[in-house]
Computed example of a mutant assay.
Amino acid sequence: LTRRLMETLHPEKLVLNDICQEMSTCFTDLLGSGRATFLAGDAESLPFPKGQDLIVSCSALQWFVSPELFFERCNTLLKQKGYFAFTTFGRDNLKEVASVTGSSLHYRSLEELEEALRIHYEIVKTHEERICLTFGTPLEVLYHLKHTGVAAVRQQAWTKRDLQDFCDKYARLFSDGHSVTLTYHPIYIIAKKRQ
């Protein structure tokens, strides 16, 4: 996303953020050019510079304690006529895994996000979709989640029995006899700071 923004919008300056300092190594060329700076830390509390024309967040808000407070905070960081654009995930995201494990992030609906934004922003564009992937086995679902970096399954170590129980239940609930499903529910929103 960062590279696409650079190619499309050609910003004079860019402030990059990730909770992990190590992510800065992905942008050594940009950081070395002086066009970008990198701030490591929690976006919910990190002191970002004010006067931004655009704030963009990709697949992070679902991890936040209070996206609503973040929306308010971004509003104070934006210039007049500034834009806030983000992607997150809705309630059906990884619903199969949530059904099997009983564990999930607190995903908000598109309507809840719009309601929270309307206090400070004009909604320019929203879109949501449900993308259903298929895999041969529940174990392939777990490998997929591991390789995408999604921590959708409980954090404590699993025993062989835990793994077998997960696979059995997943197959029983979400198999058509040939494959199993996994649903992603991305939400895309562009909002403009209210005058």
Rank of each mutant, 00 (worst) to 15 (best):
I19K: 05
G41K: 01
E44C: 13
E44M: 11
E22M: 02
S33N: 12
P47E: 00
E22R: 13
P49N: 02
T37R: 10
L16P: 11
E12Y: 02
T37D: 07
L16M: 10
A43Q: 00
Q21V: 13
S24E: 15
D29G: 12
K50F: 14
C26N: 13
Q52R: 04
G34M: 04
P47C: 00
T28F: 12
K50N: 14
K13F: 04
L31Y: 07
F27I: 05
F48W: 06
V15I: 13
M23P: 10
L30A: 13
P11G: 07
N17L: 06
D42Q: 09
D53H: 11
F38A: 00
F38D: 05
C26E: 08
L16V: 06
Q21A: 15
K13N: 11
P11D: 00
T37N: 08
D29W: 00
L54P: 05
P11E: 05
Q21R: 13
L31E: 08
P11F: 04
D18P: 07
G34V: 03
F38E: 07
V15S: 06
L39A: 02
A40R: 12
K13T: 04
L46H: 06
P49V: 13
M23D: 14
D18K: 09
L31A: 05
F27P: 07
D29I: 01
T37L: 09
D29Q: 00
G51W: 11
D53A: 05
T25I: 13
T28L: 15
D18V: 08
G34I: 02
F48N: 10
F38Q: 06
G32P: 01
G34T: 03
D18N: 08
S33T: 07
P11K: 06
T28N: 14
P47I: 12
A43E: 00
T37A: 15
G34N: 07
L14E: 04
N17C: 09
E12R: 09
T28P: 10
L31D: 09
S33W: 12
F48V: 07
D29H: 03
E12G: 08
L39S: 02
K50E: 15
E12C: 09
C26A: 15
C26V: 08
L16G: 12
T25K: 11
N17K: 09
Q52C: 15
P11V: 02
G32A: 13
G51V: 14
S24N: 12
G51A: 06
V15E: 04
L39W: 05
P47G: 00
G51I: 14
P49I: 13
I19C: 03
S45D: 10
N17P: 04
M23F: 14
L14R: 07
S45Q: 14
D18H: 09
G32M: 01
E22W: 02
V15T: 12
P49Q: 10
L39D: 05
F27T: 04
V15H: 03
E12D: 06
F27Y: 10
L54R: 11
L14K: 06
T25N: 11
E44L: 09
T37G: 13
S24L: 09
N17E: 04
K50Y: 12
L46R: 06
L16N: 12
D18F: 13
L31W: 06
L54A: 05
S45R: 15
F38W: 12
A36M: 02
G41T: 08
C20V: 02
T25S: 15
D18I: 08
G41S: 02
T37I: 06
